Amino acid sequence: MTYSLRVTDMPLTERPRERLMTYGAKSLATAELLAILLGTGQGPGKLSAVGLGQYILQKLGEDQRDPIALLRDVSIKELTDIPGVGPAKATSILAAIELGKRVLTARPPEGTIIDDPAVAAAVLSHDLMWQAQERFAILLLDVKHRLLGTRIISIGTATETLAHPRDIFREIIRQGAIRAIVAHNHPSGNVQPSPEDMHLTRQLLQAGQLLGIPLLDHLILGNGTHASLRQTTSLWQEFPQGD
C-alpha cells in the first residue's frame, strides 16, 4: 500500500493554508496553491491535496511543455481526465485561473497617468498578455503622460508580428497623441527582447527624435509578466527622447 501524508497530518507550519496566511501566496509552490483549491486529495495511491496538485502538474507537463503555461488555457475535460480530479475540483481550478486573468487584465480608465512600466503593462494586458499570436500595440498619451487610449497595429503568427515605424507614428499622429509607449507580446512567455525587437526600438527612438514625439518605452508582455526595454537596455541613453 502506498502511503501519502495527509495535509491534516502535517505540522501546522507546513500546511498550505497556514503558510499562505503567515507568509503570503507568493511563498507557496504551485502544487500547494492547487492544493488549497482542491481542498482534498485522492487519485493514484490516495494522494494528499499537495500530492494531487503535484500529480496534476506532472500530467499536464508529460509532453515536456511548461505545466504553468498549460494551466492558463486548460479545459474542463483536460482536468477531469486526470485521475482524482472531478468536476468540483476542476471548476474550482478554472474559476481561480479566470479570476486571476481578470484581475491581471483589468484596464485602468482613460486619463490615468502612466508613470511606471507596470501601469502601462496593466493597460495593455487585456490585448496582449494571453494571446496565442504576437500583437503589436500602441499606448497613446498626452503631454502629461495621461492615457488617451490604445491601438492594435498588427497581428502576426505564433512567433512573429510585423510593425513598421511609419505605420506606428502615423497612428500616433492620427490619434493626436503627444507621447507614446509601444508594446508587443511573446506567446512563448519569454519576455527577453530579440535582435529584431532591439532593431525596431532603435528605429522608433530615432523617429521619435525626428518627429518630436517621445517614445517613452517598449514593453514585452507574456505569461503574466513583462519587461521594459527602457529599464533593461541602454537605448534611451543612446537616443534621448526629451520626455
Rank of each mutant, 00 (worst) to 15 (best):
P11N: 07
R166A: 15
V7T: 13
P109Q: 12
P83V: 06
G224Y: 01
L147G: 01
I138D: 07
Q58F: 02
R230F: 06
F169I: 05
L162G: 06
R17F: 12
A118W: 01
I93T: 03
S228K: 04
E134W: 03
L12G: 00
K59G: 00
Y3P: 00
L34S: 05
Q42A: 09
E134S: 06
T80W: 00
L28N: 04
T233M: 04
D197N: 12
P214K: 09
F169A: 02
N190Y: 05
D167G: 12
E62Y: 13
A207G: 01
L28D: 02
H184D: 02
R166E: 15
G45S: 08
I168S: 02
L33R: 11
V85A: 12
I173V: 12
L235H: 05
L12I: 15
E14S: 10
R151N: 00
R19G: 11
N223V: 00
Y23Q: 14
R65C: 09
I178E: 14
R102L: 12
T232D: 11
A137D: 08
T91N: 12
S48P: 08
S27E: 13
P11S: 09
D81T: 11
K77E: 14
R174P: 03
H186S: 07
S75H: 01
L162P: 00
L140D: 09
S4L: 06
L34H: 05
A177G: 10
F136R: 04
R65F: 10
P193W: 06
G51E: 02
R107T: 15
M21Y: 05
A163D: 02
T161Y: 07
T13Y: 10
P67T: 03
